[in-house]
Simulated assay, not measured.
Amino acid sequence: MKKDKRKQSKLLIVSTLVPLVLLLIVGYIYIGPLFGLPSVGSLFQENRSGVDQAVEETIAELEQEIIQLQTQLRETENELAVMSSASQQSEEETGVQESASVPSQMNGPTDQENRLRSVVNTYKEMSSKRAAAIIDELPFEEAFSHVQAMDESLRASIIGRLPAEKGAELIERLANEGG
């Protein structure tokens, strides 16, 4: 009998306590904000905003790092192009010294034309994106002479990768001077 009474008292406590807890929770969720208590959603939002802020800071740092790496890449590509051009020039000079003993033909290409051809051949070996980056860094007159010496397919792929303003200037000058 004592066990039955204990069971009944536990059942009575549980049957009153569970609805009371549920009533308090529902009251807090729906009625609490009316009395100035923070809503449950705002508690989760505050945590989320802190996480969002940390993610945004990380993204900003990574974007800065990407920009720095792209700058380093461009500088390295430019240095490589300069070194490549210098090595080709030295090879040409060696070839010119060897051919100095052979009489030159009157209708043969000049030294400057040979250098320009060599530079154009260097552009052919590069990707059009790298070649465009290098041409974009050159003074306009030099860039124009390089582009003018190229065949049309190479010229189109490189000009297509240049900034629109510089590409438009080059095409306009090519159209005016015939190139």
Score class of each variant (00 low, 15 high):
20 L>R: 02
23 L>W: 07
23 L>P: 02
24 L>C: 14
24 L>Q: 04
24 L>P: 12
27 G>K: 06
29 I>H: 12
30 Y>I: 04
30 Y>Q: 10
31 I>H: 07
31 I>M: 09
37 L>R: 06
38 P>A: 05
41 G>K: 14
41 G>Y: 15
42 S>D: 09
43 L>T: 07
51 V>K: 07
51 V>H: 04
51 V>F: 13
53 Q>R: 11
53 Q>I: 04
55 V>H: 03
61 E>F: 10
63 E>L: 15
63 E>D: 15
63 E>V: 15
68 Q>H: 07
69 L>Y: 10
71 T>L: 05
71 T>G: 05
74 R>V: 11
76 T>A: 15
77 E>G: 05
78 N>S: 09
78 N>H: 15
84 S>C: 04
84 S>H: 11
89 Q>C: 09
90 S>P: 02
96 V>M: 08
96 V>H: 06
97 Q>V: 09
98 E>T: 04
98 E>D: 05
100 A>Y: 07
103 P>C: 02
104 S>Y: 01
111 D>V: 13
111 D>R: 08
111 D>S: 09
113 E>V: 13
115 R>K: 10
115 R>S: 13
116 L>P: 07
117 R>C: 04
118 S>W: 06
119 V>W: 09
125 E>N: 08
127 S>P: 06
129 K>E: 13
130 R>C: 00
130 R>I: 06
131 A>T: 04
134 I>V: 12
136 D>F: 00
138 L>P: 01
139 P>V: 01
139 P>N: 03
139 P>C: 00
141 E>T: 04
142 E>F: 05
145 S>K: 14
148 Q>Y: 11
149 A>C: 05
149 A>W: 10
150 M>G: 14
150 M>W: 01
151 D>L: 01
152 E>R: 02
152 E>C: 01
154 L>A: 09
156 A>K: 14
156 A>I: 00
159 I>Q: 00
164 A>T: 09
165 E>R: 09
166 K>N: 07
